[in-house]
Every structure is written in C-alpha cells, then in structure tokens.
Amino acid sequence: MNVDILYFASLREALGREKEAAELPETVRTVGELRLWLAGRGGAWAAALAPERAVRAARNHTMVQPAEPLQAGDEVAFFPPVTGG
C-alpha cells in the first residue's frame, strides 16, 4: 500500500527529509512496523529511529501507539516528544 510519511523537528533534520510518499511491502501493516522498516534503511535512519530513541507517531493527525494499523492513503508522521507551551 501507499502512504505519505512526514518528519518533524530534530527527526526531520537528522533524516534530511520532511516528507515522502512510500510504497510499503505487505509485511508492514502497523505504525510500529513502518518505523522498523524505515530504520532498516540504515545510516541516519537506523540511528534516528532506533528503538531506544523517543519517537512519537501520528496517523491521520491523531497521536497513536505502535500497534496502530495502517491503511492505504494514510498520512503518518514521526516526530520527537512535543515541547510546545
């Protein structure tokens, strides 16, 4: 399936990318699996998305847990813990 992926703040800088459209393999069905798949690109991706790094995710503009299922056409965002206010 195809999804749009967005990156924000320090994650966007570390990955050198703010947005991409990705065609996911059938094994990637959840937000957590998407993170693992992206980390599998190695280099900056493996470092920034490593399991011990605090990374939050949103699916279609709502914060979600890694087990959240994905659907074709989703907008998924990855970002560090928020620091507004």
Partner: peptide, 9 residues
C-alpha cells in the same frame, strides 16, 4: 497542550 499538541521549540 505541553504533552499532546505537536509543537517543537
């Protein structure tokens, strides 16, 4: 807001 709203400083 401090923990849920997507702002980064």
């Amino acid at each position: 807001l401090k923990t849920q709203a997507p702002f980064w400083k």
